[in-house]
Simulated assay, not measured.
Amino acid sequence: MTAVDGVPFKIFCSSESMRKLFGKAAYKDLPKSPNTIKKKVLNKSELLKKEVKKELNDIKTAGIQLAVSLDEWTSARNRRYVNVNVHSPELSEGFRNLGLTKIRGRGTAENCYNILNEKLVYYGLSIQNDISCIISDSASVMCALGRMVPSYHQLCLAHGIQCAVLDVLYKADNTEGNTGITVNRPCDSSHSEDESDIENEDENRFVIEADPSGVIPKLVYKELITKVRKIVKFLKGSPTRMDILNSYVESKSKDTTLILDCKTRWSSLGDMIARFLEFKDAIQKTLIDFKEKTTFSDTEILILKDMSSSLNFINCGHS
């Protein structure tokens, strides 16, 4: 419960309900001191580490090399850590987590390399002889680390997708030479409030064409996402608005909770758009009730459907 759910040690001592629960489960000798419980947890941790060491040593003895994935993480208390995983088909779940190590001082590539090397040595592995590949994101410190290790360095595919989604859908780039994405017919621009609408009645999917009149600049995607986020935040920010939205939803069994995207989690954009499209009619009626002038053209809905379809396809392929 401490390791998986983050339950503090003192709760097992101070909570009468918790102690009764353990008592009914035949754990009559639950310690009354947090320090005693902490020692039990740490002792169990050492036993588990020994099991992992033996498992990795068996793989090493069989002459099978492993892969390593690592990433830097900063806690809410602004403390930085490096997490290390080892991967092999010979492991029961395909990988073993070797745990977090706190970064002391600057988070340089050299510091991360030393942490990685010490972690592997602790488990009886050599970064020179037992590791065939290291996987990380494309942060500059990790790229520098990749140049230091003797094995192959593979940049994380998921992080590459994240960078691509941010570059194509979130960043407005109308500089010269930006080809954007084209559609089968030219499109005219119109504006409602501070957002852009694109008029295009063709029902086909977007295709890459040489015709410059069919280009949809990346600015359109950014403004359209901003427009959806504005509506989602407007509705989620008020229980009254959500109650009215629920009243317009035909199936009361559906989850009408709207989703707000997060730039650091690219798949959340697809979730936000998919949920928005699912309830677009009810959302539009709710906006009318509150005399909101923001509307979505048929072309904007088509663009959103294409975005949702593309992100869902990438998400399924990545999973």
Rank of each mutant, 00 (worst) to 15 (best):
V141H: 04
R106L: 05
A172M: 04
H191Y: 12
E199H: 09
E118Y: 02
D137N: 12
H87N: 03
C163L: 15
L125F: 07
N117S: 07
Y170H: 11
N114G: 08
I131N: 00
K102I: 03
N117T: 07
D194Y: 14
G105R: 13
L169K: 00
I198E: 10
K171D: 06
Y113R: 05
L120A: 01
V165S: 02
E118T: 08
R104K: 09
N97F: 14
E118R: 06
M148T: 02
N200D: 15
V86S: 00
P186G: 11
G107D: 12
L157M: 08
T182M: 14
S192H: 10
E201G: 06
Y122P: 01
F95R: 10
G160T: 10
K102Q: 07
D194I: 08
C143H: 04
P186C: 06
S75R: 13
M142S: 01
D71L: 05
R79H: 07
S196M: 15
S138K: 10
W73G: 02
I181D: 11
R77K: 09
V168K: 10
S69G: 11
S189D: 15
Y170P: 00
G94D: 04
S69W: 13
V149W: 04
I134M: 08
V141W: 03
F95C: 07
T74I: 10
V82P: 00
H191F: 10
G146C: 11
I135H: 03
N83D: 15
L98E: 01
E176W: 03
S192T: 15
E118W: 07
S88R: 06
G94T: 07
I115S: 02
G180F: 04
S190P: 06
Q128S: 10
E176R: 08
A139H: 12
C143L: 15
S140R: 13
I181N: 04
N83W: 03
G124P: 15
E176L: 09
L91W: 07
L169S: 01
I135R: 02
Y81Q: 05
C143W: 03
T101C: 13
L125E: 00
E176H: 07
D194P: 00
L100S: 07
G124E: 04
D188A: 03
F95Q: 06
Q128R: 05
L169P: 04
E193R: 14
E201M: 12
E90Y: 09
C163K: 09
E199P: 01
I127W: 03
R147E: 12
S190I: 13
V84S: 00
I103L: 10
A164C: 12
R185L: 14
D194W: 13
S132I: 06
